[in-house]
């Protein structure tokens, strides 16, 4: 666990101060910290605990309860594969396997080079387009059949890792 730099600490302070007087602000604060830093560092939990009058253990418990929060920094590119029912019955598991193989990131983990995170997510509500994948926020429907998703992912891998990959 690396120490946070002053810049990040400043951002955390700002977020905590903004929600301090709200009722039950813990999750709101965590969302903003994660949006800002990509993960929830220890220092943020400590500051949130202090501001909300709870223990660090409780804040940590909240972070570990909700699947959207992570205590580890995410990869440079985040790929979400929807594992909702509709996507599942249309072969989302094969997609997961494919992305795992291509990026080297295991499900809900980050690849060793820190470039890719693969997250299996709950239903994204785009069932009409099943199976659905998201690369860095951009949604790809019918991702198993069409080429757009695979091609895009291949392009990114090529750009990041060069031809050897």
């Amino acid at each position: 666990m690396a120490k946070l730099n002053g810049d990040a600490l400043g951002k955390i302070d700002e977020i905590v101060a903004r929600h301090r007087n709200q009722a039950g602000p813990c999750i709101e604060m965590l969302h903003e910290v994660q949006n800002e830093l990509g993960y929830i560092p220890f220092e943020a939990m400590e500051k949130i605990a202090e501001a909300t009058g709870t223990s660090v253990a409780e804040v940590y418990g909240v972070v570990m309860f909700y699947s959207q929060f992570t205590t580890e920094p995410k990869g440079k590119h985040v790929i979400n594969v929807c594992l909702g029912t509709a996507c599942y019955v249309k072969g989302a598991q094969q997609l997961v396997d494919r992305v795992e193989k291509m990026t080297g990131a295991a499900v809900n983990k980050t690849s060793a080079d820190g470039l890719f995170s693969l997250d299996a997510t709950r239903c994204l509500g785009a069932c009409g387009l099943a199976p659905v994948c998201i690369i860095d926020g951009k949604v790809y429907g019918n991702a198993l059949m069409g080429n757009s998703f695979t091609n895009e992912l291949r392009k990114i891998i090529l750009a990041e890792r060069g031809a050897k990959a």
Binding site: I27, E28, L30, H31, F65, Y66, S67, Q68, F69, T121, R122
Partner: peptide, 8 residues
């Protein structure tokens, strides 16, 4: 508005 954080 309160946001969930991924828990069914």
């Amino acid at each position: 508005i309160r946001l969930g954080a991924g828990a069914f």
